[in-house]
Amino acid sequence: MKNATPLIWRNSAARYNLAGNHCETCGKDYFPERVVCPTCRRRGKLSAKQMPTDGKIYSFTHVHAAPAGFEHETPYYIAIVELENGVHLLTQLVDSPAEKVKIGTNVKMCFRRIFEDGKEGLIAYGFKFKVV
């Protein structure tokens, strides 16, 4: 990847702290944050909200053929995690022994390097999850 600076910087609030938002009209939480509440539309009122950092594995896969930049990390787990408020997000699972990676296992957020923009570019940090 070349010149990923805007991509890395614009995503840092979401990646560092699971910054999403909340519709005060219908009570639904969104991550990543939405510009408009898809349920309430113009009647929706969105405000910033940090997502909970605990959840459970909703689904997962074991990646052996990785995209560019992740080749040296294979094999690794990618999971859809269901947070305590019901929000789903896609994340890498780390520090998680194979026998514990199952649907329904409790996981918690941790802070890791996600990718780097070449040898001299920025390092993108942010959330990954690990089995509790």
Binding site: E73, D95, F111, R113, I114, Y125, K128
Partner: peptide, 13 residues
Amino acid sequence: ASFDEDSCSFAVE
């Protein structure tokens, strides 16, 4: 430290 860890990720944790 594993592949995706460094002194910054340690410090945050």
